[in-house]
Amino acid sequence: MSHHIVEVGELQHQYADGTCAVTSISFRITHGEAVAIIGANGAGKSTLLLHLNGALAATAGTIRIGDTLLTPATVPQIRRTVGMVFQNPDDQLFMSTVAEDVAFGPLNMGLSGAELEARVVAALTQVDALYLRHKAPYHLSGGEKKRVAIATVLAMSPDILVMDEPTGGLDPYARRQVMELLSGFQHTRIVASHDLDMVLELFPRTIILCQGKVAADGPTTTIFRDRELLARCRLEQPLAMQGCPVCREGAKQ
């Protein structure tokens, strides 16, 4: 299943105002892997993720999804393979009802009629949000918005799932719901997050970004043990790994 491989080579991106958000980033993610990308605010996580399906065009470097090199010609094909859940669900849910929003991607893929309907229902059921289908996106709670945003991407049945801060701003219950969704996927998953406890729990591999560069890439448990590295990258250990007795109880469970 080589087409689920993500390969980034010497990626560089400079914004229109001259900000160099990422410089010479390289990594390779294989089929079915769950990889977390962590780093301080402004480290370049979102910028990196936006390249993975061509939402941003690289200033230099290459992106390869499976055997396909990302070029303007292959972008449509790659966008079917790589599903992207954006940081802010308000940017993702732009139609007037939840069902329409979930149908947006499949419609663009040429689906219609009963097949389209089935896709929408299946995606919404998967995130446990079928009851929201006729609602307007702005009437939803934060957790509902997030789950629907995930459904909009699942409806296109991508092979690779990319998410930017999936648990940001959610209450504990909604966070847990999203985490359960994440752990249930068989896809290759690439997730940027500040939620280090979630990373520890769900992602065996971690890449640390620091000022637009890869500062570390390896097994999550190894990386989280290196306090000095974390401090250098303006991060710290997940609460579950810190010395607090209450938290240690939580980690054991």
């Binding site: 939402a55 992207m84 802010n88 940017d91 947006f104 663009n108 296109m156």
Partner: peptide, 21 residues
């Protein structure tokens, strides 16, 4: 925000044609 919305549309296969359900 409009730029982000546009990106999210592109990510879901938007190619210039608005499909009315």
């Amino acid at each position: 925000r409009a730029e982000r919305v546009y990106r999210s549309m592109l990510s879901r296969g938007f190619a210039g044609e608005f499909h009315c359900p």
